Simulated scan of single mutants.
Amino acid sequence: MRLFRSAAITTLAAVGMSSPVLAHHSFAMFDPGKVITLNGTVKEFRWVNPHVSLFVLADHAGAPELWAVELTSPGNLTRLGWSRRSLNPGDKIVVQVNPLRNGEKGGGFRKATLVASGQVLEARLIDIEKNGEK
C-alpha cells in the first residue's frame, strides 16, 4: 500500500509540473492566416533548445530590417533532415514566415529556399504543434 501511495504521489507531482512546460509551447503569437516572404541574408542561425532561431537581414518594405524567426526544436529539425549547418551566416535565402500578431519584425518559420542551390527547407511550427510533436 505504501508503494502504491508513493507511486501515486510521484505521478501526480510529475503531471503537475508538466503543465508549465506545455504552456510554454504556444504558438498563438504568430498569425497562421498570414504569410510574409522575406528576401535576405542569414545573419545568425542558433541551434539551441527549446527552439532554433534564425535571424535574417531582409529587404522588406524597401529597407534592410533584422527579422527574428522561430523554428521548432533541434530534435524535431534533425528528424526532418536538418542540421546545425543547414543555414549559415551569409547565406542568401527567401524565407516564408507567419508574422507576429503584434507587428514586430519576427515570425514562425514556414519554409526557406537557399538562393545559391535552390534547396528548400521546411518545418512549420504550427503543423508540428497540431501533430503533438513539441
Rank of each mutant, 00 (worst) to 15 (best):
A23N: 03
A14M: 14
S19Q: 09
W67A: 05
A58T: 02
R46T: 02
W47F: 07
I36W: 12
D31R: 03
K34I: 13
E65I: 08
L71C: 10
A7H: 10
R79T: 13
G16L: 13
H25N: 05
G16N: 01
S86M: 10
L38M: 07
S86Y: 11
M17L: 15
E70S: 13
A14E: 04
S26Y: 07
A58F: 01
P20M: 05
S83Q: 08
L12K: 00
E44T: 10
S53G: 13
N49H: 02
I36D: 11
K43R: 13
T11R: 00
V52L: 05
F30I: 03
T41I: 14
L38C: 10
R79E: 14
H24P: 08
K34Q: 14
W82H: 06
N76A: 12
F45K: 00
T72H: 12
S53K: 14
S73V: 06
L12I: 11
P74Q: 03
A7M: 15
S73W: 01
V69E: 02
F55R: 15
L77W: 02
E44D: 14
I36K: 08
L87H: 06
S83R: 08
A13Y: 00
P74T: 02
G81P: 13
F45N: 07
E65W: 01
S26L: 06
S6T: 14
S19D: 00
V69C: 05
K34M: 12
L22K: 09
G40T: 01
